[in-house]
Amino acid sequence: MMSTLLDVQNLWVRFPTRNGVFDAVRGVSFTLGRERLGIVGESGSGKSMTGRAILRLIRSPGIVEADQISLEGQDLMKLSEKDMRAVRGQRISMVMQDPKFSLNPVMTIGDQIIEAYRLHNSASKADAYNKSLEMLEAVSIRDAERVMRAYPHEMSGGMGQRIMIAMMLIPNPEILIADEPTSALDVSVQRQVLDIMDKLVKERGMGLIFISHDLNLVADFCDRVLIMYSGRIVEVCDADKLHEAKHPYTRGLLNSLPRLDAPRERLEVLERDPQWSEAPSVSGSE
């Protein structure tokens, strides 16, 4: 099972700003097999930037540096922009964090999904339309025909998230980076959406990078978890052993969550130790 799909070594994301260079991601290394890899961490810890850097989609003036980002042996850092385009969507796809801003406001949902499909598949318009309908239904959107004709502002946040997922899964990628894909969904729909991704991982051997704030969800759903803090990986552990994590930051995150099985008088407030951000990044390679 553990054939390595993606191998990221020493990844940096830098932003030159007025007051010097800001490092959003600082020397992160990990591998991804045909598994569900969770990335957790507080807001601003560099989770989304890591995801974007893999697709080389950090906007200028941001810079991506890495010893390698290899996709089944092929170093993405060395690809031309044109070859990179063939990777995006088709081989690695990404569900973006905020569906409200991530869908084109003046194009119908249908056009945007069909476009995602036809970019990598030479299908007729009618076939692409049917395929898109199927995909929307697969992410449990009712009334898919109406949604196809609708514009993004007519959708709720949860529908937007599912549309994003449908749009990014339709080209059948080998790796899906999902940036908080279920944060606006209620529990039952969340379960359905997770099941779809789960099925793709299990049946087709897709690699999934699942970015989330929700420690319990990640512990429950993923195979392995990377814990990020200020641009670095501070701890790597198996998801089912997340509650036994040792790093004080992870412990802090866990202790600030309410738990039914271990009720406490007061929830802890996370106290940060400057040393955490100084310590070198832990490798997330298997």
């Binding site: 801003f101 995602a116 080209p171």
Partner: peptide
């Protein structure tokens, strides 16, 4: 600088199409 532009790039779209089919459509 809007997010949907990144979405279009994630799809693997060429820069020309990103500019004209997505961004330009929004300023018409």
């Amino acid at each position: 600088s809007a997010e949907y532009i990144t979405t279009a790039r994630v799809k693997g779209m060429s820069e020309w199409d990103v500019v004209w089919k997505h961004a330009f459509k929004n300023i018409r």
